[in-house]
Design a protein around this nucleic acid. Structure first.
Lengths: 109, 109
DNA sequence: TCGATATTTCCAGTATATTAAAACTATGGA
DNA sequence: TCCATAGTTTTAATATACTGGAAATATCGA
């Protein structure tokens, strides 16, 4: 993942409601949740939530699929994985304890 | 690290110049770099850079210390470590490949 | 003490993000 | 086909963030 896309992903998570939505979806797993359910659980009006879901979606952090009248949103694990990878490789220092030490970590070239 | 502080840290990194500054400081190590040098390297006027450094500092991602006329900025590894910890525990799913698998990771309670 | 250098604070202008109502679109059931 | 439900898009208001100049502050050397 490049810096530009990372800035987008970081920005998507850098907002209280959106971070809460994303955490909820991560906990929920691949089944996802319909937009209305998220709206109710987070306590944000549907129209505002829709805006936030679009941000998360654009940043590649959630996916959506229609199911009848509902649209199910789910955390996009590969998207989050890409962000974590970028942070580990570019914003952490070997041995500084940012990352679980060594395990599977590629070195900066 | 709680959600509020995480939002602040994510926001601090969710900006092109600031992310670039932070990456530069991570590469530089604990010695840090004077503000003017960062300004020159990143190509951002001193006054703008000062604003960005204040953001990073407020978010706990950089530290500063005076050295003669200069002020040296350095990456604050524990700050970044806290952020990574929050993301691993709250925004990643066990087995979804977000994290280097298992290594040292505490489970959600 | 004075001048040069390094950086920050103040400030105003501009740009981007957030919020939520109103209007719109899509779906499923009667 | 018509209605109710689920969501989104549009739009406008408001709020927050970014930018960089001018002025202020701190330090060093002469």
């Amino acid at each position: 993942m490049d810096a530009k896309r990372s800035v987008a992903a970081l920005g998507a998570l850098a907002q209280e409601s959106r971070l809460e939505v994303f955490r909820l979806l991560v906990r929920r797993g691949p089944a996802g949740l319909p937009a209305g359910e998220i709206s109710r659980r987070i306590g944000v009006p549907p129209t505002t939530l829709s805006f936030h879901l679009a941000q998360l979606s654009h940043a590649g952090l959630v996916t959506s699929r229609r199911n009848g009248r509902s649209i199910l949103y789910a955390a996009n694990y590969p998207g989050m994985q890409d962000l974590m990878g970028f942070l580990l490789e570019n914003c952490c220092q070997e041995g500084a304890g940012c990352a679980p030490p060594e395990a599977g970590r590629r070195r900066r070239r």
